[in-house]
């Protein structure tokens, strides 16, 4: 009797805490926000008038919303591309055994463990045009006076943000790719080597195809993480100059927690969540990531 009963209830019992907590902190608030998104909830206004889908219409006419999305995508794609290339190169080097490999591995991976907000502020000091070492190093390397106002102009601010992001997260992609490379079976390479295939050919026709799922996972993980980019921007530029480096997370933060437009912020958040959801479905299809089971 007990055994029979447990066969049905135990699996559910095991999943229950997880599902309970997750729905408690995601589903209920989500419903709350959904309801709120149909009201004008600005703290300066008395009452909370019902305004139907007006908030949603406003989101779609909000140029700043879309320019923040654009900024996010620019940073994401540039950072992700560079991180992937650097990470892959490093992984290909580190997959081989060499003297001091373990020590070097630990050191290369350290940035991943820093608080992103600390990373942001540290780099803010590094980029500083007067006191920071970066201009100083460039001056030394190039042999002429370099005085770039990294964070004051839009193009260099983007470069600063991307390099900072790259510094922290390249090791992450590198680790995943290294894990993937390490798990490839050596026999395949032996066969290829006997056939006399060049290293490049081996890389293209064996490594890349076999690594495809791993690369997919690495890019997806990192891509979605950098879509959330917030800490580094807060520390480095606060969206300046103008709002040119304002990302979607920063903009949402401002609507919600600086201007306190709760109804509008709810609508803007829901639009974003739906967009991310759609993107995910498409991305997963495209990358053909194994869906478990």
């Amino acid at each position: 009797m007990i055994r029979l009963k447990s066969k049905k209830t135990l699996p559910l019992l095991f999943v229950l805490p997880t599902m309970g907590i997750l729905s408690f902190v995601t589903i209920f608030p989500f419903i709350y926000a959904f309801v709120l998104s149909f009201f004008q909830w600005d703290y300066q206004i008395m009452g909370r008038p019902f305004i139907g889908i007006q908030n949603y219409l406003n989101v779609f006419q909000d140029g700043r919303y879309f320019s923040a999305l654009g900024t996010t995508v620019i940073i994401l794609s540039a950072a992700l591309g560079l991180e992937f290339m650097l990470g892959l190169a490093l992984a290909l080097i580190f997959v081989e055994e060499f003297k001091g490999r373990n020590a070097a591995l630990v050191m290369v991976v350290l940035p991943v463990m820093m608080l992103p907000i600390v990373v942001g502020y540290t780099w803010k000091l590094l980029w500083n045009d007067q006191y920071g070492p970066i201009n100083h190093i460039l001056t030394g390397l190039l042999g002429k006076e370099i005085n770039i106002l990294w964070l004051a102009k839009t193009p260099t601010a983007f470069i600063s943000i991307i390099v900072t992001d790259l510094w922290e997260w390249t090791p992450f992609i590198f680790l995943i790719l290294l894990a993937g490379l390490t798990s490839l079976s050596p026999e395949i390479y032996e066969a290829a080597a006997i056939d006399g295939a060049s290293p490049w050919a081996r890389f293209r026709s064996i490594t890349l195809p076999l690594m495809r799922p791993v690369i997919g996972v690495a890019l997806l993980f990192r891509g979605l993480e950098s879509f959330k980019i917030f800490d580094i921007i807060v520390a480095l530029t606060q969206g300046a100059p103008g709002t040119s480096t304002e990302t979607i997370s920063l903009y949402l933060y401002r609507i919600g927690f600086q201007y306190f437009r709760m109804g509008y912020a709810s609508a803007a958040n829901i639009v974003l969540l739906v967009a991310v959801g759609c993107f995910l479905v498409v991305a997963v299809r495209l990358l053909r990531i194994e869906r478990g089971g």
Partner: peptide, 27 residues
């Protein structure tokens, strides 16, 4: 006036954009 904070943040964004090279009128 109400939302003065927000008005000024918008003005400040225009100003830093202009310092960064954006056309003053456009900003």
């Amino acid at each position: 006036i109400p939302a003065a904070f927000e008005y000024f943040r918008a003005l400040e964004e225009a100003m830093t954009a202009a310092y960064g090279g954006k056309d003053v009128q456009a900003a």
